[in-house]
Write a protein that binds this DNA or RNA. Structure first.
Lengths: 232, 232
DNA sequence: AAAATAGTGTCTATAAGACATTATGTC
DNA sequence: GACATAATGTCTTATAGACACTATTTT
């Protein structure tokens, strides 16, 4: 709610209070060359000019928060229609932005391996995928935001099917295992992994194979539901 | 972040954009007479005048979000210094408030059984504990907010030690079990519950007993850490 | 036939759940 | 001694983890 029950004003006056700015910032993850990557943009203006930052920007008066997150991601990096985009946390420390009071509603997105390099959007001078374990210094409190996003992604991987959002429609069990390994940062046992995955009803075996290289081809699978589902 | 990298403005002008209002709302839970309760206030002004709502109000320009949540809870209900207060989710649908665009950062708080009835604060005409399964109609999207808070509390009870925040410093195992049962909404097996709880290192047995009524007294326990801890 | 990745099963340890009786205080 | 709640252990089942060899394709 907004105006508390008994404001001293008998009627509501929207201009009565000074208001903070509200932005959305997006932590977009993808799995690429066996490493987890995040999409960053290089800032063109003060403050933190020339530094890398999360894509994001002002929430407009006539758009929902989720819509704003999609829009900013698209405008600044060219990534449109992220299949998975979820609110992460709202960061509102008084001094997190040197310009004025800015409250940032952070989102995180999961994307299948990008076939195209991100193009710099209309608002960003440059957009680029960075491996999460080799990041440049980040503007504002974005290093902190990113850490929280990583924690959430790791946790969520354990009890939901979010991995689907990092994979294309068809994939091999080895590719699925790679996604788990690169997010969790440790190796998993192949037999146990497959046993567990196939015991859920999340995967559907296809009548197709992926061949590539001098070895046995792998069966392709797809997720029965491309939406997050709780495991077990 | 806030202003995107290449705003059309070369320098930042804080007055350039129309801004939404930002509020905090607090879902305060307690365990009382074997039922889970939420603290609501009755609104004194339009909109939803006379209806029940979550305590909350404007975030001030010079206070952090957590601080604002503590302050509003105190001002509107007299509850000060909640031991557990955690951000829940940010609600920002364009039309969630009939007055103007209002983005609400929701928090949830856990309180030990209140010894005093809540007093109406300076801003609220009335404040009262309501059983979560017998709520009055709520203002704004507060019924939705409350549902999300309940889901979160139930989930968190399963994998952390949050129950400590709903209990006084010293309690019996039966009291602890009651808290679990009333949040989860089902009965638990006494022996299994105690076995599991005592196998964690969360509880410390005290050399004290609680007597009351014509029966064997119960041993008192306390939590070793009064902060949320992941189980196992 | 050599190389490379796919695919498969058993055994063990641990955790979760079902279940009933005895203990100790008050009145 | 009647009553009321506290306290306690075993067995079964399900789940997680360690562990090594065979299968199939390309070159």
């Amino acid at each position: 709610m907004t105006v508390t029950a008994n404001d001293s004003l008998a009627t509501y006056d929207p201009a009565a209070f000074e208001r903070p700015s509200v932005t959305v910032d997006v932590v977009a993850f993808t799995a690429k060359s066996r490493r987890l990557h995040v999409l960053l943009i290089r800032r063109g203006v003060w403050p933190f000019e020339g530094q890398w930052a999360l894509p994001g920007g002002f929430v407009q008066m006539d758009e929902d928060l989720d819509t704003a997150a999609h829009r900013e991601l698209n405008e600044e990096t060219g990534v449109a229609g992220a299949e998975f985009l979820e609110q992460l946390y709202t960061f509102g420390k008084v001094d997190r932005d040197p310009r004025t009071r800015v409250i940032s509603v952070a989102y995180y997105a999961l994307l299948p391996e990008p076939s195209l390099a991100p193009r710099a959007g209309t608002d960003a001078s440059e957009a680029q995928w960075w491996p999460v374990d080799e990041l440049p210094p980040l503007a504002f409190d974005h290093a902190h935001v990113l850490e929280i996003a990583l924690d959430r992604l790791r946790a969520k991987l354990g009890y939901t099917s979010v991995a689907y959002a990092l994979l294309p429609a068809e994939f091999t069990l080895t590719e699925l295992q790679n996604v788990y390994e690169l997010i969790l940062g440790r190796e998993l046992d192949k037999r146990n992994f497959r046993k567990k995955m196939l015991s859920t009803e999340l995967l559907e075996g296809l009548e197709k194979q992926r061949r590539g290289g001098a070895h046995r081809p792998a069966q392709l699978f797809s997720f029965t539901k491309r939406e997050p589902v709780f495991l077990d």
